[in-house]
């Protein structure tokens, strides 16, 4: 279930990545070294990525979208997600809080090189876009038969 994506903390490198993100948050600026397509914490939409032996799965937390305003493209292993979210505020309304993202967004992710850009599918449910990209056949683990003599 979802907790699987939270298990990241067990790995020291991921802990380091999280620390980097927290520092980014505190200082509001990039550290001397960051992923080329990395974004500061809180960027819309939030993204989680996981993999199985057969595919790589990207979960994009983009609620309230029209699927025809959502564009997902994959070129090689570079996935981009583009879209727009507009909320119309009635003229006679007083706005007390306006925290929700508005306008156009674009997020680009580099997936593992083993993905096959010919075999992708995307679904949108409860405001989460799920993109499943199959791994190339040669990247999948093969069982090696041990022959008995």
């Amino acid at each position: 279930m979802f907790e699987r994506l939270l298990g990241l903390d067990t790995d020291l490198w991921d802990r380091f990545a999280q620390m980097q993100r927290e520092l980014d948050e505190i200082f509001g600026r990039a550290l001397p070294s960051a992923a080329i397509r990395g974004v500061p914490a809180g960027t819309f939409p939030a993204v989680n990525v996981g993999e199985t032996t057969d595919d790589v799965r990207v979960y994009v937390f983009a609620p309230g979208l029209d699927t025809d305003k959502l564009e997902v493209t994959l070129e090689g292993n570079v996935l981009s997600i583009e879209g727009e979210r507009q909320e119309s505020v009635p003229d006679n309304a007083t706005v007390y809080r306006n925290e929700r993202f508005q306008g156009r967004f674009r997020r680009v992710l580099s997936l593992p090189e083993t993905v096959d850009d010919e075999r992708v599918n995307a679904t949108y449910k409860d405001g989460v876009l799920q993109v499943v990209v199959a791994k190339k056949a040669e990247a999948q683990p093969r069982r090696i038969e041990v022959k008995a003599h």
Partner: peptide, 14 residues
């Protein structure tokens, strides 16, 4: 969110 049980995390904002 429905996801395969054997999935390994690579990156997570959430």
């Amino acid at each position: 969110i429905e996801m395969p049980a054997e999935m390994q995390p690579l990156y997570a904002d959430v």
